[in-house]
Amino acid sequence: MRAAVKAGLTLAVHRSGLASALSRRYGGAGTIFMLHSVVENGAFYPDRGLRCPTAQLDAILTMLRRRGIALVSLDEAVSRLRDPRPGRFASFTFDDGFDDNLSRALPVMERHGAPFTVYVATGMITGDLDAWWLGLAALIRSRDVIALPDGTAFACNDAPSKVAAFDAIERAIHRRYELLPAIRDMIAAAGLDLPGLVRAEGLTLERLRRLAEHPLATIGAHGTTHINLARAPEDVAREEMAANRAFLEAAIGRPVRHFAYPFGNARACGPREERLAEAVGFETAVTTRHGAVFPDHLHHLYALPRESLSVHDTPHTVACKLSGFYRAVYSRLGAPVSHLGSDAAGDRP
């Protein structure tokens, strides 16, 4: 229902011309897009909001090319903020370090000559990632009913209800991170091997190096174990960033200059984490908050907004994201549009 309402709204906004009108105020210089896993067309995943089919990624890139939007690396995006030029740009980023970023995303990006950044968590390679969302998806796959500790139950006996259950539980966790220990206990009690699930989907060291060698790819950092940095002591948050950067630089033999905050919403990163990212030596850091990027973001390079892309997106939702529609919707009246994006949908891992 949520997806249907959203699709109908974005279709109306796009066709009415409102998206184009908003873009003059909210569209900025360009958009940084966020993806996670890229999957085969037609494959089913309960966590489908974290997955983008290859055909859909191809269609989005085709659409951007037809609209005359330049597909640029993250470094080029920052350069264009410093030295503005005609036309808008799009930069693509992929979080976590899924192996399918190499096996499925890369061939699509190659066809379009589209640079991209992959933010890799150390634990995605070692199996130590706190990837509770993968465990939750596996749990939902195996059950017809999921009950939370507070007694809330979710029927999940078919594909649509499994997707709905995952989305509802994920939203509940991001509202109350105190639920996570119980979710982890449920995953363990079901006998699910979380490190095994991570290793099955994550890059290996060899595959990471192969990806890093590709001229279109940039490797960024995403923390050691993908914890909520804002809820961690400062020394732990700093070590999550610094150790991850050191691990990746040793693995690929080149500097790692860009960082993505795990979860990336206002409850997971803020001014302290921005200061830490700069102190550790990163040149940029991205959030999951809505919004385009503006020249003013040169003063906020450790709080860059992004727009997510997944199986839920249509040409109309992409057009709305390019125009800054979601930023406009979630902005408080009178908030400066050239500053930071909103936090209304920054809940994806």
Rank of each mutant, 00 (worst) to 15 (best):
P305W: 04
N244P: 02
R306D: 05
L205D: 13
T284R: 02
H290D: 15
G220M: 01
L304A: 07
H258G: 04
G220I: 00
A242M: 06
H300W: 12
A268Y: 05
G264S: 08
H316M: 07
E307R: 06
F263W: 15
F263R: 05
A237E: 03
L298F: 09
L248Q: 05
A217R: 08
L229H: 08
G220D: 03
G220N: 01
T288N: 08
E249F: 08
M241C: 07
E273D: 15
E283Q: 14
P215N: 12
R275E: 13
A279R: 15
R245N: 07
D313H: 14
R275K: 13
V311S: 11
G202P: 06
A260Q: 06
A212F: 06
G281E: 00
P255Y: 10
A285H: 04
G253Q: 09
L203S: 01
A268M: 02
A292H: 03
G202M: 07
Y302R: 11
E213S: 15
L309D: 05
H214M: 04
H312N: 15
A200M: 04
E273M: 08
A250G: 13
A260T: 08
L276T: 09
R209G: 10
E234G: 02
G202F: 09
E234Q: 14
A250I: 08
G253D: 03
A303E: 11
H312K: 12
F294N: 02
A217T: 13
L208R: 02
D235W: 14
G220Y: 02
A237R: 11
R275W: 09
E274Q: 14
R238G: 01
V286M: 04
G202R: 07
N244V: 08
V256M: 01
R209A: 09
F259A: 00
R306P: 00
